[in-house]
Amino acid sequence: MSDQAIVRINDLRKSFGDLEVLKGVDLEVTKGEVVVILGPSGSGKSTLLRCVNRLEEPTGGEVWFEDTLVNDKKTDINKVRERIGMVFQSFNLFPHLTAKGNVMLAQQKVLKRDKATAAEVAVRQLTRVGLADKIDYYPAQLSGGQQQRVAIARALAMDPHVMLFDEATSALDPELVRGVLDVMRSLAKAGMTMMVVTHEMGFARDVADRVVFMDEGVIVEQGTPSEVFDNPKSERTKDFLGHIA
């Protein structure tokens, strides 16, 4: 299992000032695996995700991506990030560029693809997320769900080895959530390695290979969806699932 690990996290710690958000997290994600991270707000799940591509600088422990120690000062973090796609709660599309422009930019500037190739990939990825008819629209002309799908296409265009979803549907109106979840579902089916922070229990149950429950900066419990949802061992997990249901 560990020879196929794409992301390996050992005793990860992160503090913001006096506040310790991650108190020693160990987690391994293998190729093709979909890991859904659940937990109450403030449990450190977003911070965990953001440590994987070093948007947050870990205070201690190790984060490995394939053969690279991510939190090593000598590591060229931009090289690592090329291969780690991230989707944010607030979409973060570039408002001055069209959907196509959003998907093309990093391909050209980071991967140095020529314009024609980047455009071709952009159209393919936007079609994949169901937005073939919106390629020339600006973010402001798109609904939240469509914007988030553009953001997914933007990340996919880089041919990532793993995708991080940080509450990708939390900012969406309920009726727009499904379209985004469908895209994530089909990605999982296509074999993409995914780390997903979400509050969508249905998605976790259907799509996750493994569910990780976090609380107060540690992993409390993990297992298959049925293990965690149907037979939670920890009181805290039971409590959390009870509140959600």
């Binding site: 591509n53 948007l55 931009n78 090289k79 990030r81 090329e82 780690i84 796609g85 991230m86 944010f88 607030s90 973060n92 599309l93 570039f94 930019l105 990093a106 500037k109 980071v110 991967l111 953001a151 933007r154 990340a155 880089m158």
Partner: peptide, 14 residues
């Protein structure tokens, strides 16, 4: 917004 820089950096841009 801060998210713009984060999104760009997460795509591997310097």
């Amino acid at each position: 917004p801060k998210g713009q820089m984060e999104a760009a950096r997460s795509l591997g841009m310097s």
